[in-house]
Design a protein around this nucleic acid. Structure first.
Lengths: 207, 207
DNA sequence: CGTTTATGGATACTGATACTATCCGTCGTA
DNA sequence: TACGACGGATAGTATCAGTATCCATAAACG
């Protein structure tokens, strides 16, 4: 398959495919001559993944690169592969909260993790985001929401349990891909469902 | 309070505040003379909200504008206010799936909504995203995840229920603000918690 | 009372991101 | 053997989220 056919097969313009190649999101095709390469099913598959992440899940291209790199690094433990993908998914956010608010939130979050028995490394980027969010909620006067942290955590555990049950991939490669897709598209799924459920509830309560 | 003090009170640089004023995210201060304005508590509060949405929840500035506009439009029903905010939160996504895949997913999602008894308008942007996501999951070969749609929906209902319980605001204005903050920061909360729960689970299973 | 600093308002510039477009020399096919 | 497609490189574009600069005026300080 040449690049034109790859483009037709995926609906992605040739210049965009070239861009993904340049950025290292897509492995180069096998060169059959100095200026002729051939692409296969793998490339179609990968492009579909890229598009889902970029268009649907709005993951920045640089992050998609890290994610596919972690997928291709099948020589490291699965847990580390997932860790790499997780790191790519949590953007570095400018600190919003005051140091005091953050410190208080950190204590609170720490207690939550202990209660739930979640063992995470202290440098996990998602941890910083959670702390920052709790601090922001308090600063914005939404203490009532913070009071439900444990209930939130319980519902979140349900998702994670579902996703573990859902991954039933035959090979190690496919397992990793399954987990990563589940993590990312699962979030889009949850977000859109949540909006719909809210709309329905809001219609019942306030209209 | 003048703009310099506002800047000091919030930690936001003066040029950035001016930018938010230009973009209409922040109401202008009361003019005491042709080139002197005074700002109050409302402005501090609003800036904190803007920063939480922009920095923490990564909502684009244009969308934040629509959200604060919907908050200020307290002359329309609460349900419509929330609808406006919801619309601002669902970015227009380029269609990813093939027409056939989308049509199949649409049927599936429709059945789900009926089963759950969710009543949403057919033009809800989140609906399109959900359909697109289901189609993408199928195209990417993640049918096993799609099989858990109902379980996902159930867990999502749990969140919505929590959030309804959590909003206990005295006034109509504060109710709207509470719902909007809950919707947006609640998502950041869920996302970061989910990542942490996954990391913990992944450590237990695969390390 | 004069000088320095801050302010509101307008306009211009910047850096990052995600593509698009163009060019060039080569290659495969008709 | 002509002609469009290709690989590879470089340059250009649009959008976004601020920053920076300028101006005339107002406030604060000595």
């Amino acid at each position: 398959m040449r690049i034109g056919e790859l483009s037709k097969a995926t609906g992605i313009p040739v210049p965009t495919i070239k861009y993904y190649l340049r950025e290292g999101l897509l492995a180069p095709g096998e060169l059959t001559s100095p200026n002729q390469a051939s692409y296969g099913e793998v490339h179609i598959r990968r492009l579909r993944l890229i598009r889902a992440l970029v268009d649907l899940a709005q993951v920045p291209v640089a992050q998609v690169k890290e994610i596919v790199e972690s997928l291709d690094a099948d020589d490291i433990p699965l847990h580390d592969q997932i860790g790499r993908a997780h790191r790519a998914l949590t953007p570095a956010r400018k600190p919003t909260a005051s140091p005091e608010a953050r410190a208080a939130a950190a204590v609170e979050v720490d207690a939550l993790l202990t209660r739930r028995g979640w063992t995470v490394e202290p440098e996990a980027p998602a941890l910083a985001t959670l702390i920052e969010t709790v601090a922001a909620l308090r600063t914005l006067g939404q203490d009532n929401l913070v009071a439900f942290l444990d209930a939130y955590a319980e519902a979140v555990e349900r998702f994670t349990q579902l996703e573990v049950e859902a991954v039933a991939a035959p090979t190690r490669d496919q397992l990793a891909e399954s987990v990563v897709i589940g993590t990312i598209l699962g979030e889009t799924l949850i977000t859109s469902m949540r909006l719909l459920a809210q709309e329905s509830t809001s219609a019942n309560l306030w209209r």
